[in-house]
């Protein structure tokens, strides 16, 4: 357990997670080309991660675990994972084993929490574990420690397809997310859908508008010079249209994420992603 973040001898990639599928890009762009050629509705759909739109230097930075700063957060996460915490003096690792046991988990979040009767995102789930099983205080949303643990867990799903939760209650949550996504808001009166469905690929001043797939969170944005979660990205988009952002960790953000995940079903997880 303790050894997961150690870099393998001889300068090879750190042994943090299963090796990534190198054919990924070829497969996705192949699908897109096929869709264009077929021109048929419902044929492979043309969904692309922002990764595909980024400059080659940024893609290289994301792909190389030695230059991707997200891996440093995962490393901190690994330490926290193994550290006894809270009144119960118990570590995540004592209940869950190695971080690798979390493979696939991030790919199906947000999920339904029976006990509280609400949908929770991955960070909220980590905080519930702290409160319920470690007797610890919840970590602050967006804090280094919570980002580190979330990054560690998300990393275990790298390369896996997004597979939204099948809990029946999540259907309504996704519906709520879709409604928010299509609602115009703010002084500029734009909806998420305006930019990310209708105008994706266009240029808003210097920025190419991405399709808004939540494949890479938490992620390291050069603009932030640090890791940030999806809430932070969505707050930026909302402030961009001069809207009052939803609160970090709010049900609205969880619903938006649930909808975005469903919209990106089958796309590969790539956290920790790099973005401009």
């Amino acid at each position: 357990m303790a050894g997961q973040v150690e870099r393998a001898e001889g300068g090879a990639a750190p042994r943090l997670r299963p090796p990534r599928d190198i054919c990924r890009k070829a497969r996705w762009s192949g699908a897109v080309v096929a869709a264009v050629l077929a021109g048929a509705a419902g044929a492979q759909d043309g969904r692309v991660s922002t990764y595909e739109q980024m400059a080659p230097e940024l893609r290289a930075m994301q792909d190389d675990d030695f230059s991707n700063p997200g891996l440093l957060w995962a490393q901190t996460g690994e330490e926290l994972w193994a550290e006894p915490s809270g009144a119960d003096e118990v570590a995540c690792a004592e209940c869950h084993g190695a971080a690798e046991e979390m493979a696939g988990v991030a790919a199906h979040y947000p999920d339904w929490d029976e006990e509280s009767g609400q949908a929770v995102d991955l960070a909220a789930r980590i905080n519930l574990c702290r409160q319920r099983h470690q007797g610890a205080e919840p970590l602050e949303r967006g804090s280094e420690a919570l980002l580190a643990l979330t990054t560690l867990v998300a990393l275990q799903s790298r390369g896996q397809p997004i597979a939204p939760s099948e809990a029946p209650q999540m259907e309504a949550v996704r519906g709520q997310g879709e409604a928010l996504y299509s609602t115009r808001m703010g002084q500029l009166n734009l909806a998420c859908a305006t930019c990310h469905d209708d105008l994706a690929g266009g240029r808003l001043l210097a920025a190419e508008i991405p399709q808004a797939h939540p494949t890479g969170y938490p992620q390291y944005r050069l603009e932030w010079q640090e890791m940030g979660d999806l809430d932070r990205r969505l707050r930026n988009c909302m402030v961009g249209v001069r809207a009052e952002p939803f609160a970090a960790g709010s049900q609205e953000f969880v619903a938006l994420e649930a909808y975005l995940k469903a919209r990106a079903v089958g796309m590969e997880m790539e956290a920790p992603a790099i973005r401009p």
Binding site: M185, L190, M238, A243, E244
Partner: peptide
Amino acid sequence: SIMPPYHSLVGLTRVGERWQGDTI
């Protein structure tokens, strides 16, 4: 139209606090 209404407040929702009541 996606073009923001530059001098109308009609139908706007969730306008951020610091822009409330102001037209663009």
